[in-house]
């Protein structure tokens, strides 16, 4: 399934104001892999995710998915393949009801009414939120919002799921159910987060970003247990690795 391989080759990105956010990022993610992207604030995680669906374009270097290279023309193809779940569900759920929101993507893909309804049903079923479909997003709890946000992306049936701080506003229980939900997905997953325990739980592999480049790439259990290395990068050991002394 070569068409699901995500590859960043020597990607540089500079914002219009001159800030160099990415300085030569290289990595390759194969089909079905779960990869955590960690790094201190401002390390370039969000910028990196925004390259995944062509919201930002590399200043130099290439981003490819399978045999498709990211350009102005292929942006829309990329957006079909990569579903991005945002940090703040209020920004992601922009339609007035849950149903409309989840249907937004499929409708934009030009699907007919019956298939759209089927997609919506399936996606909401996946996150156990079918009963919410007539509600407006502002009547939902944070946990429900994040579940629906995921459904709105899943309704597009992407090959790759990218998430930015998926558990940021969740209470412990909602966070736990989000983690078990993520584990049921067979997609390739790329999760940017400060929540190192979540990464450890969901992702077998972990990429550490520092100063706009990849500073470490390897098995999560290995990288996230290296206390000295993590502290060097303004991170700390996941709670599950910290002793209770």
């Amino acid at each position: 399934m070569s068409h699901h391989i995500v590859e960043f080759k020597n990607v540089f990105f500079r914002y219009p104001d001159g800030t160099e956010a990415l300085k030569g990022v290289n990595f390759r993610i194969t089909h079905g892999e779960s990869v955590g992207v960690v790094g201190a604030n401002g390390a370039g995680k969000s910028t990196l995710l925004q390259h995944m669906n062509g919201y930002l374009m590399p200043t130099s270097g290439t981003v490819t998915i399978g045999d498709l290279t990211l350009t102005g023309k292929t942006k829309r193809e990329f957006r079909k393949k990569v579903g991005i779940v945002f940090q703040n569900p209020d920004d992601q759920l922009f339609m007035p009801t849950v149903f409309d929101d989840v249907a937004f993507g499929p409708l934009n893909l030009g699907m007919d009414e019956a298939s759209v309804r089927e997609r919506v049903r399936k996606a909401l079923g996946m996150v156990n939120s079918l009963d919410l479909q007539d509600k407006p997003p502002h009547h939902l709890s944070s946990g429900q919002k994040s579940a629906v946000a995921i459904a709105s992306v899943m309704a597009m049936e992407p090959d790759i799921l990218a998430m930015d701080e998926p558990a940021a506003n969740l209470d412990p229980r909602s966070r736990r159910s989000l983690i078990s939900l993520l584990k049921t997905f067979k997609h390739s997953k790329i999760i940017a987060s400060h929540d190192l325990d979540l990464i450890l739980d969901v992702c077998e592999r972990c990429i550490v970003i520092g100063g706009g480049a990849v500073v470490a790439d390897g098995p999560s259990a290995e990288i996230l247990s290296n206390k000295a290395f993590l502290e060097e990068n303004n991170l700390e050991l996941p709670l599950s690795f910290q002793g209770r002394s």
Partner: peptide, 9 residues
């Protein structure tokens, strides 16, 4: 950005 990500045109 969120709208674009879901195929808004």
């Amino acid at each position: 950005y969120a709208m674009l990500s879901r195929g808004f045109h």
